[in-house]
Design a protein around this nucleic acid. Structure first.
Lengths: 200, 200
DNA sequence: ACCGTAACACTAACGGTTAGTATTTTGAAG
DNA sequence: CTTCAAAATACTAACCGTTAGTGTTACGGT
């Protein structure tokens, strides 16, 4: 054994420093982007301001767009958990509706607004977000398919997953996001009810 | 008047040459892409092979990805027409189902297959296709919203439009595309029926 | 015949991204 | 404590898509 002093997390200095570098890069980038616009700030400038090499930036992030989505990016996990970790009394669709509601609230509240205005301002960021959502939908689809409760086909599950992320996407550029979520989920409710399986 | 000799189309030599250049670029690019892969062929090479300047390529196409989607790209028009130009007896959703069926058939048939395998092979092309589909969904949503027949909200119409393009997208990477289209459209049918308006 | 302009060529650059290589830092073993 | 392999980072130099700037040619209308 090498260490007994660490209390709970056996993380070494190495990983701590790496995480610090990552956070420093992301924070610096977001600050610059919010200040002067996404397109007006280059990677070389972000690297210089964060006092790292350009290659270091790309060793931590897959691309420039990923720098923006660093902060709130547990969407995937939240979606999957909403589908799998729920009380036995709560059916699937209402659980998803609740989660999407929470996500939309989280995005349209207080400090998150400038970030989403930044995203909406750049086609590259919007495209990146969209492909992100596709991945999330696939994860959610896998979770739904694996759910016990009936002979639902993979295709139907993937469709429901897509509809769910569509609800989020649509709600996000609407005057009344909460109302939009409910409106779209009324449709999803009806679609889900039309499936020949148990209503979960 | 300047010319009476042209039989039907009053197109001059200029526009003909421009169209020829455009087609030559697109054909050359597609041939090279199919031959050696999308990422392995650069714009400079496409331009050289088509015997034009690089800037000419970008004056005809918005970007490298657009070169691939040149061939079949009237999807948007077909979708909108399926919603607006239909017999009074045919309801909206069945008309959309028919059109999506036709589109899927058109994409999975004969000569179109290599192109779609090319698209599936490149993340950049997949992302481009996805953002294309978002635009198409918006157009379709506008068409549906403008349809006579009831107090459907814009949000509900946008949702149905998204679901429709989702059906195409999902069906496209499925073993049995036609069956997938029907499966997803059964869901859309149920969702549409749940709307408080006349069932169109 | 003349002129405005659309189409195109050419050069050079910019910004994101990556390969290749060297250097430092860290964790573990002896 | 020394040593060593691997990880993290730095540095250089390029590649590729894309665009701006600037001419030049060819067409269409007068």
């Amino acid at each position: 054994m090498t260490e007994q002093t660490a209390p709970a997390e056996p993380i070494g200095r190495r990983e701590r420093k790496k995480a610090a570098t990552r956070r420093k890069i992301a924070d610096t980038a977001l600050r610059l982007f919010l200040d002067r616009g996404y397109d007006a700030v280059g990677i070389r400038e972000v690297a210089a301001e964060a006092d790292v090499a350009v290659t270091t930036v790309f060793s931590h992030f897959a691309g420039k767009e990923a720098l923006v989505f660093e902060q709130d990016e547990d969407f995937e996990q939240r979606l999957v958990r909403a589908a799998t970790d729920r009380t036995p009394e709560e059916p699937l669709i209402p659980a998803l509706r609740r989660e999407i509601h929470a996500m939309v609230r989280h995005c349209t509240a207080d400090g998150a607004v400038p970030i989403w205005r930044l995203i909406d301002s750049s086609p590259a960021l919007r495209a990146y977000e969209e492909s992100m959502r596709l991945r999330h939908a696939e994860s959610l689809a896998a979770a739904i398919t694996a759910l016990p409760g009936g002979p639902r086909t993979p295709t139907a599950c993937r469709a429901i997953a897509r509809f769910t992320v569509d609800a989020f996407s649509l709600a996000r550029d609407t005057a009344d996001p909460a109302a939009a979520v409910d409106e779209v989920f009324d449709l999803i409710d009806a679609a889900w009810a039309a499936l020949p399986a148990l209503p979960a």
